Computed example of a mutant assay.
Amino acid sequence: MDNFTTFVTFIDQWAWIGWLVLIAVFLVIEMLSLDFTFLMLSFGSVVGLVTDLIGVPVWVQVIIAAAAAALFILFLRPPLLKRLRRGEDPTKSNVDALVDLRGIALHEITQISGQVKLANGDTWTARTATPVPIPQGAPVAVSAINGATAIVRPVND
């Protein structure tokens, strides 16, 4: 039992280094992910460090740090994310910009194959989501993009 007591005393004396390491690791991961989750975990670790400096037992430090991190994730992270994304450009881009884009069927489009020329000038392989084929030359609109294939629907203008 003497070795165990020595080990617990050692952990209790040097826990502040563990908290500093956790804070640093979480901050580095946050810089790579930019999602605020690891930032909240580092804030929880700061709370754990403060409780260690006050003299709280290690097992209580861990519980308090975990609870603080959970509260930060639940209550601080959502408004920070909302504030961060407030100035984003609402314009759709990439694949999202293709949904609802109109085009013309270059070949008959079935559930298996087809080709479409979109209004932006791109030519895509295409499929229809319905069993009814779309004839060549018919106007279409993109419903979704599945890999490199446009899922299209007929448009009746």
Rank of each mutant, 00 (worst) to 15 (best):
T149E: 14
Q13Y: 13
I112Y: 12
V116L: 09
A68Y: 00
A67W: 06
N156A: 11
D89C: 07
A69K: 06
V95S: 08
Q111P: 04
T9S: 15
I73C: 06
A150C: 07
F72A: 12
L32C: 10
W16Q: 05
G121Y: 13
G121L: 11
D157K: 11
R86F: 10
W124K: 01
I112F: 11
Q111M: 14
Q115R: 15
G18F: 08
F75S: 06
R86G: 05
V152Y: 05
D122Y: 06
I29L: 13
A141R: 15
G137I: 05
W14A: 02
H107K: 15
T6P: 00
A24P: 07
V28A: 13
F26N: 10
V152Q: 05
Q13W: 12
R153Y: 05
I109M: 02
D35V: 02
L98K: 06
G44H: 02
A68W: 01
V47H: 00
R153T: 15
N94Y: 10
Q136V: 11
R153L: 10
I54S: 00
V8Y: 11
V99M: 03
E108P: 09
T91C: 08
I109S: 01
S33C: 08
I11G: 03
L41Y: 06
H107W: 11
S143V: 13
N94M: 07
D157R: 12
L101A: 06
P90T: 08
V21Y: 06
V25T: 05
F72V: 03
A69N: 04
T6C: 08
I112T: 12
G18M: 08
P133A: 01
T37G: 03
I54N: 00
V142R: 00
W14H: 15
D52M: 04
L74W: 14
R85Y: 15
Q61V: 00
R153N: 10
I151F: 09
N156C: 03
A70Q: 03
L22M: 15
I151C: 07
I73M: 13
T125N: 15
R153F: 07
L98P: 10
A66H: 01
L20E: 08
T5M: 13
T9Y: 11
I29E: 01
T130F: 04
L32T: 14
D35W: 08
T123M: 10
A129I: 10
V8T: 12
A105I: 05
I151W: 04
F43E: 01
G87N: 14
I145T: 02
A66V: 11
F10Q: 08
T37H: 09
G55P: 05
W16C: 07
A68Q: 02
F38Q: 08
I23T: 05
L53E: 00
A97H: 03
N120P: 06
R85Q: 09
T125S: 14
K92I: 04
D96R: 07
I54W: 04
L49C: 05
R83S: 12
R85P: 05
S45L: 01
